[in-house]
Design a protein around this nucleic acid. Structure first.
Lengths: 122, 122
DNA sequence: AAATTACGAAACCATTTGGTTTCCTTTTCT
DNA sequence: AGAAAAGGAAACCAAATGGTTTCGTAATTT
């Protein structure tokens, strides 16, 4: 369904790296409601316009932002779709904080935590 | 005893930065099932033991890993709890990757799109 | 036509990052 | 006691990151 069939090879920045920077998370928050040209965007951040532009490029590399040229301006908007990968990554770990009390109880009862539990794979 | 010591010190590395590196995500995956000493951990990664140690330090700064000294070895295990912050950050954006028909319906029904909770941080 | 606006590109810089090797201390094994 | 094992700490290095200023060019305004 996605229009990019060479998705794996072209991405220089992944979603994990893209959201690591607080400025970029701020950009996503700003662009989630609709598109905005670069000048308007950069007025929200304490840095120069080219700096914001570079962050936008990184977000675009990760697919988190789409751009559209309108006259002499470039408008950006967020695309939340790549966050699905983050969601599924997170989903794996959810049970480890939901069952924390269970884990504690198991620890106390057996007096031997993690018995026979070798991590199976990387 | 203590069920909440999170308010104590502001860490140098946050959870977003900690999971940005693929090696560190591999470490979490390895340590989620139980604790493991550093040598055993580093044997799973194509780098030297001190390099792995530094990654572990970063994870510990973010609270994602706990260490325990046992004899001459230091055993690490994952603590998934800080991932809750990531979860709540993500929760805000989840509605935006639901399919476009849902988004349109929400727009029409509420007459006020995209109003609601804010992400927990930038 | 000329000036202005919008913005990407490039050159440059300081700091951080991810890795290495070397060394030191503590603990365990013979 | 002496040797070996475990792992942290420090010095060092190349590359990536996050920022700047300057410049070029296409679109718009006057």
């Amino acid at each position: 369904m996605s229009r990019d069939n060479a998705a794996a090879a072209e991405q220089k920045h992944d979603v994990f790296q893209a959201i690591a920077d607080p400025t970029r998370r701020g950009l996503l928050r700003l662009l989630v409601d609709g598109e905005m040209p670069v000048n308007a965007i950069s007025s929200h951040f304490p840095m120069t316009r080219p700096a914001v532009s570079k962050h936008l490029r990184i977000l675009a590399d990760a697919g988190l932002v789409k751009e559209r040229k309108v006259g002499r301006e470039t408008r950006y908007r967020m695309d939340a779709d790549p966050l699905r990968e983050l969601k599924s990554w997170l989903a794996f770990y959810e049970r480890f904080w939901e069952n924390k009390l269970d884990a504690l109880r198991r620890y106390v009862e057996t007096d031997e935590p993690n018995r026979g539990q070798e991590p199976s794979e990387l």
